[in-house]
Design a protein around this nucleic acid. Structure first.
Lengths: 153, 153
DNA sequence: AACTCAATGTCAGGACTTTGACATATCCGA
DNA sequence: TCGGATATGTCAAAGTCCTGACATTGAGTT
């Protein structure tokens, strides 16, 4: 049931499943699903992995920083951080030295866990990227960036 | 805080925020946020809107069909359908005539509600699409489709 | 006809995320 | 100096979604 019915393949894309938004959702869902499956075997959720990756790149990010960067609310970010902290993968000073922000950092174990999953996660992304001509990747990235920026005001 | 630090803008994209997956997530989050904001004013959630749009295109889709098409589980799809039914926007036969699948259809009110929000939603998508050169749109859609297909086996 | 198998709808429980609100801390302009 | 604006962390409640499980239905096979 529900085959494509592609009779008029052309211009204005009357079929919702051919809209940019739908393709975006579909691709993102596929990626998140594949990542979640792999990460679960390592005891990590997708937001937790994203947080580890960001902290490796920018040590000392605060909860609010991380929440913005992972596109969730501060409250959700706090839950993620709490989980990582209980798992011993990150540390946060009990008291903030400047504002209220408490900078988070990877522990050695956190660094090791990240390293352990990166290969698998990158393989997934590579499988996705390999599906398109290599010379189009840079343009694709730029276009995604432009589209996102257009909606973020 | 956290400015770009773009010293080496080129090849392998060592910065996670320049990975395809991250851009995909960011763009999708921006779109979902913008859509959610508009749809809430009309008393609809994003999955509810997606369901209405699909039912307008393919009347008679079952809950399982819709769940697959909106990338959620059957259980979540059921909740969405229940909400739409209580709002009087769709109808489902109390008993299935063939298997267990109960085909859903838009009511006149559901059709009207969909028509009422489409302009606003399409405007958002248009704002996003206008951010990139028009001649690249078809390629972008094709690439997204390829990437999604590659991860869906 | 009997069996196996896949698909569908649904229930229960839990995990994750959001909305709303509040207190605290810094910065900046009047 | 002082007050408003901004930013952060956190709590509470609700909503949303998922995992796991089960019963029902139809198709295909033997």
């Amino acid at each position: 049931m529900l085959q494509n019915e592609s009779a008029e393949p052309s211009r204005p894309a009357k079929d919702v499943t051919q809209h940019v938004g739908y393709l975006l959702k579909r691709t993102q869902a596929a990626l998140r699903g594949a990542m979640g499956k792999v990460l679960r075997e390592h005891g990590l959720t997708v937001p937790q992995y994203a947080t580890l990756e960001l902290l490796a790149l920018h040590p000392g990010m605060s909860n609010a920083d991380l929440a913005r960067a992972t596109f969730v609310t501060r409250q959700s970010g706090n839950v993620v951080l709490r989980g990582l902290q209980e798992a011993g993968l990150i540390t946060r000073p009990a008291t903030a030295d400047h504002g209220r922000a408490r900078p988070a950092r990877l522990t050695e174990e956190g660094d090791a866990r990240l390293a352990a999953v990166q290969a698998a996660v990158y393989a997934i992304e590579q499988r996705m990227v390999d599906a398109i001509p290599a010379r189009r990747l840079a343009v694709l990235l730029a276009d995604l960036d432009r589209m996102a920026a257009a909606l973020e005001e």
